[in-house]
Amino acid sequence: MSDDPADDLSLYPVSEKAPERVRTPTGKPLSALTLEAVLSGEIGPEDVAITPEALLLQARIARAAGRATLAENFERAADLVRVPQELILDTYELLRPGRARDAQQLLDRATLLRRDYGAARVAALIEEAADVYTRRGLFVKRY
């Protein structure tokens, strides 16, 4: 990929223009997802998931199309690919109003995500939330 945004745009749709740039989480090419492979068990549910690399590629495409905030969302998503479902849902729950007792609980979660999963962009989002929640008094229990 060059630094010319037009080059990134020319890769879209990736499944048609640059299928070789995406793989399954298990390293198989897109072309491996055939009915025969599903029937033989060669392809399972673990193969049908997007990778951080594909999301970062889509982020470059979005940015090249002038959609910077969408690109940032894709980058946060790339952070979350390897985060287990339960931890994502628990973090979502923690960000809801009145769930965290205090800012520290949110900051701890940010630290964990950054440390264990390299999820720096998601961690930054949570730290920003901790700051605003403190100022707006959102650590009040709701039920």
Partner: peptide
């Protein structure tokens, strides 16, 4: 927003979570 049981940050995380699952 708060009665809807969310904040912009919880929703932003959820939005990214969807994308992270394709």
């Amino acid at each position: 927003f708060i009665d809807g049981d969310d904040t912009p940050w919880s929703k932003a995380l959820l939005t990214a979570a969807y994308a992270s699952r394709g």
